[in-house]
Computed example of a mutant assay.
Amino acid sequence: MTTTHTAALLALSLSIGLGACSTTASRIGEQQGQFDSYPAEVREKIRAGEIAIGFTPEQVRMALGEPSRVYSRQTAEGEAEVWSYQDRGPALSFGLGGFSGGGTSVGAGVGIGTGGEALEKLRVQFEAGRVSSIETAGKN
């Protein structure tokens, strides 16, 4: 594989990976009518990528995107739904390798990886269709 092919493959992989990321602005744009119907203080928080007690699941999705994990929790009041948001951290790695087998064969490969160890950064609990608690990871 030539250097030109390697660079083209790398550029394609990065554009696919970055293109899959949604932003707060893109999520608002996809649901502009719904966003415009929210009170000003809710719109302000969503634009900032923040949430508050009382938000609906739609408002949380608009502000934060899809959760990394969804699970249920039993509480004294009944069953609650919990959304977990994880941060994989800014990790990007590249690898290039090859070998020669006695001068008769040569192989090369390119490896690209994104994401590191997943760390939970936020948990959002819903009761009766509204955010009832927000847990954030402590800073060490």
Rank of each mutant, 00 (worst) to 15 (best):
V70E: 05
V110N: 05
Y85R: 02
A48T: 03
T104W: 12
E30V: 04
R69A: 04
G17D: 09
V110K: 05
A63C: 07
A52V: 05
F126S: 02
S84V: 15
V82L: 06
G138V: 08
T75M: 07
A25E: 14
S13M: 06
R47P: 00
E117F: 09
Q31A: 15
T56P: 01
T24E: 02
M62I: 05
Y71L: 06
R88N: 09
R73Q: 12
L119S: 13
G78D: 03
M62A: 12
R69C: 01
A91I: 11
E44H: 12
L119Y: 05
R27A: 02
E30W: 04
Y38L: 12
A108C: 06
R47D: 00
T56H: 03
S68D: 05
E77F: 10
G29V: 04
G97L: 06
I112T: 07
Q74C: 04
E81R: 13
R130Q: 12
Q32L: 14
G102M: 07
S22A: 10
P90A: 14
T114A: 11
G97K: 10
S26D: 12
G129V: 04
A20C: 06
G33R: 12
F126T: 04
L10C: 05
G33P: 00
G97T: 11
F35A: 04
L96S: 11
H5E: 14
R130W: 02
T24Y: 05
Y38I: 02
V82H: 10
A52Y: 02
G78L: 13
A40M: 05
G102C: 05
S37W: 03
K121I: 12
G116S: 06
R73G: 00
A40G: 04
E44R: 15
G78K: 10
Q31D: 06
E81Y: 06
Y71N: 06
G116K: 04
D36F: 02
F99C: 02
L122F: 04
S100V: 13
T75G: 11
E120Q: 12
G65C: 11
E81K: 11
L18P: 00
Q31T: 09
I112G: 01
G101Q: 08
F99H: 09
T23W: 11
F35P: 01
E58A: 14
S72T: 12
V106E: 03
G101W: 10
S72R: 14
T104V: 14
G33S: 10
R88A: 09
A63N: 04
Q125W: 00
G49C: 03
Q59A: 15
R43N: 01
V42M: 01
I46M: 06
A80F: 03
G65I: 04
T56D: 03
G111C: 01
N140S: 10
L119A: 11
I134W: 09
T2P: 03
S26I: 07
S37M: 03
F126A: 01
E50N: 13
